[in-house]
């Protein structure tokens, strides 16, 4: 393998039901930052059916080129036709780096294409940078439940492939005038690659907003004591225009939905304001929220690790402080 033959950064632009997943825009943004260090450009690879029109959206978030494989066999995600299509693109275009979202799709497709191409894959990266000496990609990820960070390299295999969790990287500001060079890339015989039958698609019903999109999160943990006690968090969220999330303890206890879980096994969030109520701050939880702009912690245990990441911490009783805080903020809002 001649490493010099591999050029450019590719991003797998995940779309579901014709809508590009937000992590894909974040990856295009991150790819642009990496591309500056490599003096190269960014190509989004879009797989689907009747999706060519989405290429412009990738362009305004920074993609220089978009390769589209548009085929009825790619209508709904299935491992085999997607692997065949993405592998064909990688074989033909020889990118230096490929980034995928660490989603339920990316974490299935990534291993298959890395196996087919006999190259390395690093999962769930939280930081990517270029080694300016070797020009190789340095992929940093949490391991052992978030206890340790490891920087992984893929020195002599290409492409270097990484998956990145959604909410970790930042998208670029939109440039509405940007246009990408779009290349339609047909892959023959994709329908023959379909190996399973999707009998039914069942959408999970959730009325709540995605906690990854929230500017203000009021998060409850074990200290909330029960589902009924989350109402005081809802009240605080209401006056701050935020939404309620949970630590793993609250989800495992059955008080809150899994969708609302922040942390290593839940979602990574970076709101402007994160208020942790009755959350001790296990490393797995901190891994999912420590990038928040402002962190407030309220906990009765002065030694709780959450205070180690908090900008402002109050040692005290959540059930007394939160309602009083809500009332205090409400008063200020009313006076304005």
């Amino acid at each position: 393998m001649n490493l010099q033959d591999y050029k450019g950064i590719f991003v797998f632009a995940q779309q579901v039901d014709g809508k590009i997943s937000s992590v894909s825009y974040e990856l295009v943004g991150e790819a642009k930052r990496l591309a500056a260090d490599l003096n190269t450009d960014v190509t989004a690879v879009l797989l689907g059916h009747n999706v060519t029109g989405l290429a412009d959206k990738l362009a305004i978030y920074g993609a220089d080129h978009v390769i589209v494989v548009d085929d009825p066999a790619l209508e709904t995600y299935m491992t085999d036709p997607y692997t065949v299509a993405l592998h064909a693109v990688l074989q033909a275009k020889k990118p230096d780096i490929l980034l995928l979202g660490a989603t339920a799709i990316g974490r299935d497709l990534g291993p298959r294409v890395s196996g087919r191409g006999a190259t390395g894959l690093t999962a769930d990266c939280t930081k990517l940078d270029i080694d300016l000496e070797t020009k190789g990609l340095r992929m940093t990820r949490p391991a052992f439940g978030g206890n340790i960070m490891a920087t992984i390299i893929c020195p002599v295999h290409r492409p270097q492939i990484a998956t990145v969790r959604s909410g970790v990287m930042q998208r670029l500001d939109v440039n509405p005038d940007a246009k990408a060079r779009v290349e339609v890339f047909p892959v023959p015989g994709l329908e023959n690659a379909i190996a399973v039958e999707i009998l039914e698609i069942i959408k999970k019903t959730t009325a709540k907003m995605d906690i990854q999109d929230a500017n203000v999160l009021i998060s409850g943990g074990r200290g909330m004591g029960g589902a009924e006690n989350y109402q005081i968090l809802e009240d605080l969220a209401k006056v701050l225009g935020g939404t309620v999330s949970s630590s793993r303890a609250g989800v495992d206890a059955g008080w809150m939905d899994k969708e609302l879980q922040v942390g290593q096994t839940g979602k990574t969030v970076r709101p402007n304001l994160y208020i942790a109520c009755g959350i001790s701050g296990a490393i797995q939880h901190l891994a999912g929220m420590e990038e928040s702009e402002i962190i407030i912690a309220i906990n009765k245990d002065p030694d709780a690790p959450i205070f180690g990441v908090a900008d402002f911490g109050v040692v005290g009783d959540v059930f007394k402080i939160v309602p009083a805080l809500t009332a205090g903020i409400q008063k200020i809002v009313d006076e304005k």
Partner: peptide, 27 residues
Amino acid sequence: PTRVAKSFTKELKGKGTVVQLDVEESV
């Protein structure tokens, strides 16, 4: 194909201000 270049324990963000006051002062 992949190897660990480096492993390290994560540094937590710098400590902020933590207070232990009565409810009114805390708010």
